[in-house]
Write a protein that binds this DNA or RNA. Structure first.
Lengths: 343, 343
DNA sequence: CTGAAAGCGCTTACAG
DNA sequence: CTGAAAGCGCTTACAG
């Protein structure tokens, strides 16, 4: 039976014959077991086991109109995929959360215009039931485009439209502002008084909201929070190094640094070392993400943990809800302060 | 026409009516255009454009028996996915190479026994046409299991069976031995005479073949290559640190280190720094992979570049060949020595 | 080169 | 609770 050949697999018809019922009954059993007597159910169950039957998803999809699959769509320029460990965590989490529902994840990359066109054609043709959209930059036109075409879409991170407002697209995100507030409060509690920040790009929610959190806490504490204490990076390690060097030059008396990502924070640490500042003695450093970069060197980073495991499972939950006809919703998840050596 | 509703998409029937031909003719046009007159082809082409027709892949698959999709199967324990940047490069490369053929990539993770069972059931049910198998450890039973079930499988890296021989499974790999020979030759040419190595796990081709390359070149050069100059790691950064520390203790006069992965080499550099050895002055260090870790700190690593971009495209090429009925083949790709600061 | 027709494996009203 | 039947959208011999 378990020969090495790839023979015609058993169909619902084989199961029905084996169980002594009609194909309709087998199908009903397969789809929730409504209107199937216990006796018939037992017979079908046994027949499925004996025949090794597995549903032909193509035949099912042809009639239901659903594909029972979901796309994980990456709209970053491709290098980002490698620099940002969060993508990996998210991808793994989504794959496994979907697997629990027996739904395969199709990985799609839309970095170039040609790729975007292909993806839009593929998705709008109904080849997937919905899209998990991942991009750290927010003005992303694909979310809107797909949503308009009636495709269920859930974005990772808060999507911002052209006018700077949160777009009306289902999304799951960490609470960037509150997370930033937590760590800046921690820096203040350490007695630091000149707290500068390396912010992310202004067209990303992380760039906007983490900066806002920094500003708020400093204002509440009566500490300076002027633009001279702000430098921007693009989340890359090297941009963090450059931004920190710039800040050190501009405000040499800085005694703490809130850096909007761990990777940038590692770059900032390099700049501090080059400048002969000890961490945390001279300058305390706080990061954001709790990514592998946080512990990839010394000192280990005090940072803000993003709940990526929950983000992925929530994204899948919301997407399956959308596919099932529910209304779009936004989920904002709490972060957690992780104290290590750098602050 | 491009309304915001998700209406019944046009079928081959709509196209046929629009073009004034039969559905058979449209189908023939779609599948290579054999036996379709130029006039009919033009009419169909125009009708497809007007209607916005896209093939229903489920209907097609139901009849052809092919799914026109491929699985990318990761059998690592999940943490590996994050530690090894090669997975990312491979994943991206395969996704894009397949996209060029309009074939979606299904990402599957089989780290636990339960996940493995689910994947085997899914794949052997014919839900994908073939599998790109990725695991650095080689005794992987899934390759054999899937191949036996008649599923086209291409492995990344040379698969080794239980008895230590190369398994008869199609695979694509870098030339580990020749790559190791190149960089060890380079260390010798630098005048180094006590060249130790941090090898990978003995159940991985990288662990076996890179070690063999190291041994051969030293033997050819009349230099010592005894077991006291070998320590093993598991490809993690920390294991590299430990192995290097052990070697320094065992053979303090070592003047060069060939480390079988860049990540382990970064760990080794930390051990050398702690021991007060300057790199490359006191100890030259050569890595393997040319991964992001190679340039993620100072000194930048002299290393061996694995052609991951070609590996992914070759994997896809071989897999599509298998699916098309060709015989399994092995592809071994040349590596490249990359000189930087560490040696 | 072309059309009419069968059929892929399933789900789903429908009638009982 | 159950079976017979229609039909999802496509491909593929088959006859012309």
């Amino acid at each position: 039976m378990s020969g090495s050949e790839r023979r015609r697999p058993p169909t619902i018809h084989d199961v029905a014959r084996e169980a002594g019922v009609s194909r309709g009954t087998v199908s009903r059993f397969l789809n929730g077991g409504h209107n199937v007597s216990p006796g018939a159910a037992d017979a079908v169950r046994a027949a499925i086991r004996r025949t090794g039957y597995v549903v032909n998803r193509h035949a099912r999809s042809l009639i239901t109109g659903r594909s029972d699959s979901v796309a994980f769509l990456l709209t970053e320029p491709q290098e980002k995929l490698f620099e940002d460990p969060n993508f990996n965590v998210l991808l793994r989490g989504c794959t496994q959360a979907l697997a629990a529902h027996d739904i395969p994840l199709l990985l799609m990359i839309a970095g170039t215009p040609a790729e975007r066109r292909r993806v839009v054609r593929y998705v709008t043709a109904g080849h997937v039931d919905g899209v998990l959209l991942v991009s750290s930059h927010t003005g992303d036109p694909m979310a809107e485009q797909l949503t308009k075409a009636g495709i269920p879409v859930v974005a990772s991170g808060k999507p911002i439209d052209r006018s700077g407002r949160t777009a009306r697209i289902a999304h799951v995100a960490a609470d960037d502002r509150e997370g930033a507030r937590d760590i800046v409060r921690h820096l203040v509690s350490l007695g630091r008084r000149r707290i500068a920040t390396v912010a992310g790009p202004p067209d990303t929610p992380g760039g906007v909201d983490r900066l806002a959190g920094w500003r708020e806490v400093l204002a509440e504490a009566g500490l300076p929070a002027g633009d001279d204490l702000v430098a921007h990076g693009d989340y890359s390690r090297d941009s963090g190094r450059r931004a920190a060097a710039e800040l050190l030059e501009r405000t040499p008396d800085v005694d703490a640094l809130f850096v909007a990502s761990d990777l940038m924070a590692r770059g900032a640490l390099a700049a501090l070392e080059r400048a002969g500042r000890r961490v945390p003695d001279d300058v305390a450093v706080g990061g954001f993400d709790d990514s592998p970069a946080a512990v990839a060197g010394l000192p280990e980073l005090t940072t803000v943990r993003q709940p990526w495991d929950r983000i992925s499972s929530e994204m899948v939950r919301v997407l399956l809800g959308l596919i099932g006809g529910q209304e779009p919703s936004a989920v904002i998840l709490p972060t957690e302060l992780v104290r290590r050596q750098s602050a």
